[in-house]
Amino acid sequence: MTSQDPLQGRLGKLANAIAARVVQTLDLPQLVSEIDVAAIVDQIDILEIMDQSDIDAILQQADMDAVLDSVDVDRVIARVDANALLERVDVNALLDRVEVDALLTRVDVNTLLDRVDVERLLNRIDVNALIARVDLDAVLDRVPVDELAQRAGIPEIVQESTSHMAASFIDALRRIAVGLDLVVYGLAQRILRRQAADLPQRPRLLAMEDSG
């Protein structure tokens, strides 16, 4: 331990005494008001100060939670000009950095579809406008109409209906002929004064089949 300089000790006391006296004499508020703070700040090179500072160490010592709690986020956001911000964003560059496949693999399509209101979606679709944009000729050119007709059984239906119509026509003619048969035969039996009920209507075996 070194011995204190007696002169320095006295000067120090003197200086302290003078300083105390000066402070008592000065009108500090008046003095502060006369300081040009702006001029002082202009002379400060903040960047140089920051370069010399250990920002990380400062941040580690800072209570960030307390800082963030004191920030009024809503007020900050209210002051943000979102449009100006977005104008500065290069969307294409942003999208280039997005890995779409990885994004899609994380999407639960079923859940997504469950949330889709299909009825509402369909109601918003202008079907007429949609159809008007469709080139039906081009679509029909690609449709195998013959194959579809075959698979739908249209030839069989046409054939069946045609056969049915022909059979109906022939049956109508047959009915007329059978009716005339009956009239002619009835007249002949009246001429012969026969009782029709006594006459056989059909061959014996067929009549037996009919009755038995």
């Binding site: 009915r175 059978v178 009956l182 009239v183 039996q189 029709a196």
Partner: peptide, 28 residues
Amino acid sequence: PRTAELPVPISAYLARKSVTESDEPSLS
């Protein structure tokens, strides 16, 4: 496969005749 039939008017005539004049000789 289809049934041989008389025309409706003659069938109806025969049906009426068989009901009202069961003892009279019918056309058939």
